[in-house]
Deep mutational scan, measured.
Amino acid sequence: AKPPKTVTVKVEVTNADGETQTRTVTLTNLPKDLKPGDTVTLPETGQTARIVEITP
């Protein structure tokens, strides 16, 4: 079996106070056609994050 493909992405997350924070997260099994501006759900927090940058 192939190991899951991990991708490092820079995302913007809005916290409970309405502040936008930029975080770098490593995600696995992202859709192939994901692009900056799309939103993903962070598995560890369940927060919705907007992708700023994808590092191949």
Rank of each mutant, 00 (worst) to 15 (best):
I51G: 00
P56S: 13
Q21Y: 15
V13T: 07
Q21L: 12
R50P: 01
N15D: 11
E53Y: 08
N15V: 06
E44F: 08
N29H: 11
V13P: 00
L30P: 15
D33C: 07
D17F: 12
K32N: 13
V9P: 00
T45Y: 04
P3K: 04
V40R: 00
T45V: 04
P4K: 09
E53S: 12
T22L: 14
T55L: 15
T39A: 05
E44K: 07
L27N: 01
T39Q: 09
K35M: 08
T24Y: 15
V52T: 04
T45D: 08
T41L: 12
V7F: 15
K32T: 11
T24I: 15
T55F: 15
G37W: 02
T14G: 03
L34C: 04
K5W: 14
T26F: 11
T20R: 10
T45F: 05
A1N: 12
T24V: 14
N29K: 05
A16Q: 10
T26E: 10
K10M: 11
K2P: 11
N29M: 08
P43V: 07
K35G: 06
L27M: 09
G37V: 00
V52P: 01
P36K: 07
L30G: 09
R23N: 04
T48L: 12
G37S: 01
T14M: 12
P4E: 10
E53K: 05
P31E: 14
P36I: 15
K35W: 04
T14P: 03
K2D: 11
T55K: 11
T24C: 07
T24H: 08
T8F: 09
V9G: 00
T41M: 11
A1Y: 13
I54D: 01
R50V: 15
K5Q: 12
K10D: 02
P4C: 12
V40L: 11
L30N: 06
V40S: 00
T41G: 02
L27W: 10
Q21K: 07
T26H: 11
T26K: 09
K2E: 12
V13C: 04
I54L: 06
K32Y: 14
A49S: 02
T55C: 13
T39N: 07
E53W: 12
I51Y: 02
V9C: 06
A49W: 09
V25S: 01
E19P: 02
T28W: 10
K2A: 12
K32H: 14
T45I: 05
P3M: 02
G18D: 02
D38P: 00
T6K: 10
L30T: 10
L34S: 07
T26D: 05
T22N: 05
R50Q: 09
P36N: 04
L34G: 02
V40H: 01
P36V: 15
K5Y: 15
T26M: 10
P3Q: 05
T39V: 13
G37Y: 02
K32F: 15
T48R: 07
N15E: 06
Q47T: 05
P43Q: 06
E19W: 09
P31V: 12
T14W: 08
L34Y: 06
A16H: 09
T55D: 11
E44Y: 09
V52S: 02
P3L: 05
L42K: 00
G37N: 03
K2S: 13
T20Q: 07
G18R: 02
V9S: 00
K5D: 11
G37C: 03
R50L: 15
T39D: 05
T48F: 08
Q21C: 09
V11H: 00
V11N: 00
E19K: 12
E19G: 09
N29P: 03
T24S: 07
N29C: 07
T14A: 06
K35T: 03
P31Q: 13
I54Y: 04
K32E: 14
T26S: 08
Q47W: 06
L27K: 01
P43G: 05
T8M: 09
L42F: 05
K10F: 06
V9E: 00
V9Y: 08
E12C: 05
N29D: 12
D38Q: 04
E19I: 13
K2N: 13
K10Y: 05
G37D: 02
L30Y: 15
P56N: 14
D38W: 03
L34I: 12
A1I: 13
R50F: 11
Q47H: 05
Q21D: 11
N29I: 05
A1E: 12
T45K: 02
V40W: 11
T28H: 12
G37H: 01
T8G: 02
L27R: 01
D33E: 11
A16R: 08
K32M: 14
P31H: 14
T45L: 06
D17I: 08
I51L: 04
T55W: 15
P4M: 13
P56G: 13
T6S: 13
L42M: 06
L42W: 04
K5I: 13
L30H: 11
V11F: 06
N29Y: 10
G37A: 01
V11L: 06
P3G: 05
P3H: 08
E19C: 11
V9Q: 00
T45W: 04
G18E: 02
R50H: 08
R50W: 10
P36R: 05
G46D: 04
A1F: 12
R23S: 09
T41H: 08
K35L: 05
T22H: 10
T8P: 01
V25I: 14
P43D: 08
P3E: 09
L27S: 02
K10C: 07
T45N: 08
V9W: 02
T55A: 13
T6V: 11
K10P: 00
R23H: 13
T20Y: 07
K5V: 13
V7M: 13
D38Y: 03
P4L: 13
D33G: 12
P56L: 14
L30M: 14
G37E: 01
P43L: 08
E44V: 09
D38L: 04
T14N: 05
K2Y: 12
K10S: 04
V9K: 00
A1R: 07
V13S: 03
T55I: 15
P56F: 14
T28P: 08
T20N: 05
N29Q: 07
L34V: 11
T24W: 15
K32I: 14
A1V: 13
L34E: 00
T41P: 03
T20K: 11
E44D: 15
T41C: 05
G18Y: 02
G46Y: 03
K10T: 12
D33S: 06
K35D: 01
E53F: 07
I54C: 03
T39M: 14
P36H: 04
T41N: 07
Q21G: 06
T14K: 10
D38R: 02
N29L: 07
G18T: 01
V7G: 03
D38F: 03
D33R: 06
V11D: 00
N29F: 09
I54F: 08
G37M: 01
T6W: 15
L30K: 03
Q21T: 14
A49F: 07
T20D: 02
E19Q: 12
R23L: 15
V25Y: 11
E12R: 06
D38K: 02
T28F: 10
D17W: 11
N15I: 06
P56W: 15
A16N: 08
T48A: 10
T8K: 08
I54V: 08
V7Q: 10
E19M: 10
T26V: 12
R23Y: 15
L27D: 01
T24A: 04
T8C: 06
P36S: 04
T14L: 11
E19V: 14
T26L: 11
L34F: 06
E19L: 11
V7R: 04
E53P: 00
V25M: 09
L42G: 01
V7K: 04
V13D: 01
K2Q: 12
I54A: 02
T28E: 10
N15K: 05
V52K: 04
Q21N: 08
T22K: 04
E19D: 09
R50T: 15
D33A: 07
A1S: 12
A16M: 09
L27A: 02
D17M: 11
T48N: 08
V52F: 02
N29T: 06
G46S: 04
P31L: 13
